[in-house]
Write a protein that binds this DNA or RNA. Sequence first.
DNA 1: TTGAAAGCGCTAACAC
DNA 2: GTGTTAGCGCTTTCAA
Lengths: 331, 331
Amino acid sequence: MKRVTIYDVAKEADVSLATVSRVINGSEVVKGATKEKVEAAIKKMGYKPNAIAQGLALQKTTTIALVIPEASYTYTGQIINGLLDVAKIYKYNIMIHTTTEGISEINEIIENIIKSRVDGVIIYNDRLEQDELAALTNYNMPIVVIGNRMSGSNVSSVFIDIKAAICELVTKYLETGIKDVAILQDRKHKYISEQMELGAKEAYEAKGLKFDNYIKIDASYRTSFDFCKHYLNDHRHEVMIANRDSQAIAISNASKEHEIKVPEEMEIVCVLDTKYNTMARPQISSFAIPSYDLGAVAMRVMTKMLAEEEENAQGSEIELSYLFTPRQSTK
Amino acid sequence: MKRVTIYDVAKEADVSLATVSRVINGSEVVKGATKEKVEAAIKKMGYKPNAIAQGLALQKTTTIALVIPEASYTYTGQIINGLLDVAKIYKYNIMIHTTTEGISEINEIIENIIKSRVDGVIIYNDRLEQDELAALTNYNMPIVVIGNRMSGSNVSSVFIDIKAAICELVTKYLETGIKDVAILQDRKHKYISEQMELGAKEAYEAKGLKFDNYIKIDASYRTSFDFCKHYLNDHRHEVMIANRDSQAIAISNASKEHEIKVPEEMEIVCVLDTKYNTMARPQISSFAIPSYDLGAVAMRVMTKMLAEEEENAQGSEIELSYLFTPRQSTK
DNA sequence: TTGAAAGCGCTAACAC
DNA sequence: GTGTTAGCGCTTTCAA
């Protein structure tokens, strides 16, 4: 099927290509009759404007690059859905790039992003290296970061205040007389782990206590479950808080093996859960993190930055709220 | 930061833009000295070729559109990873589009895909409507379908033979004297459900028996769990087979409430599982479906179709193999 | 081995 | 209102 161009349509409708261009771009100045004539020709020939050519002429691609860590769609899936739904509304396309653990192949991705001349970049990353961001900032394209609080010239962020969430929760426990709250490290998400520890510390210190129940997972353990099974041999806590539901479920399963009753003898809480928590027994109490909104808002912020047009505009920091959702794993 | 173009580099290196073009495209004819001069200029100015302009000139974008159903990243995540890894190797970009349940907004997506002039389309869908495919085929761009066996001019597919898998499993049960095997319908994945039923039928009929344990889920139930809880009030089976682990876990949880011991009194099997099965107790026996490979192979097939260049070439049907993996939910 | 110039499909002044 | 034309940044004949 021969690709039909704007010239073909112009010839068919017996007008100039400028007129066709006006019609497809909804210009007001075209006379009703010509407009109809052109539209008929477009329909007849099945003409679809070439977005690449438009991109060249307009110096914009209406596509946004999304950068996410590989292999964690369980958690990022909702974010992507939110992103795509909003992108659809504003007619933006999403180009997806995944980063692989560690490797500094991030530079390849950046190179790729620059070459493809996207209009903006949305990055989801637990811990974003400053120089990675700088590499992108150089090209002064709008950047939205999901999950980290940060902002600057042309960079905005959308995030949850995990530290505050944990602080609030721990404070509540401390006030009901529960003093032995532990936080389980999440090796793969250092920034969040850090925030969680800080939140607990803040809560303890506010009560004049010292927090030292940050449980580091020894690198020799293959899974959280293996570690927890071993850890519970000679440790007990009134409450254990994990980052993701997978870890909390590991704690829960390990507790079963040690015949520790949840929640009677130990309560378990996690920060981020997925639909799999609904299948877990007991179901883990968690913070309802609005993942979908994280994505949707990020995309909204992006379109706003794109619309503002001012180069080097100061970006915004948008904090989304969470809600603690008690389930079977807490009293 | 002013975008630097091929002209800027040409001027800097004191050659024509044609020469610069030759250098960035690795042409053999350029003299060593000039090549070095140009490369130095490129480096100095931080020049990155504009993929959009290249796309216009070459009539190809080196980007592939991926179409997947929304909100099921738990299952498609691995497929996407496989896809992206291979895409990276061949320097292809992936543009992601999601389809929403039912709505025929699929046409909007197709429109979008055509306009963005991607080089090919990869579609993952349980049941692909024939006319949707036709709409794309018209534009004679290569299409790879994941999950359905089909092929034709410019369309290939990569899939698992679910019917055969179920037939084999059921046959094994029948031969060990277990006659009451049931299949639980998956309302959201009609095609697979159908294949599963056909597989069971084939196995039963080969033994001169009749299969009538295809359990339809009444539309009035909100979740598989609700349904199973009710269903088990007055039904028992020796084996229950579900499509996804989420359903199998629902059966397992419902069994607990009815004090049916798994696997002693009932065995449970699922076709497709995710990492959440590793957290489930008991862990569900499943077919190891090579999701990652499904994606990786699909992308490989795509690059092959793209390389062949012949228009309207007959596509291929590639069947990937599965492996039954026994776990705690079977004897 | 290199350069000049046409063309990829479209937009947006500018002219009529 | 509509047409003409000069780009947008790059590739690729065709000449030199």
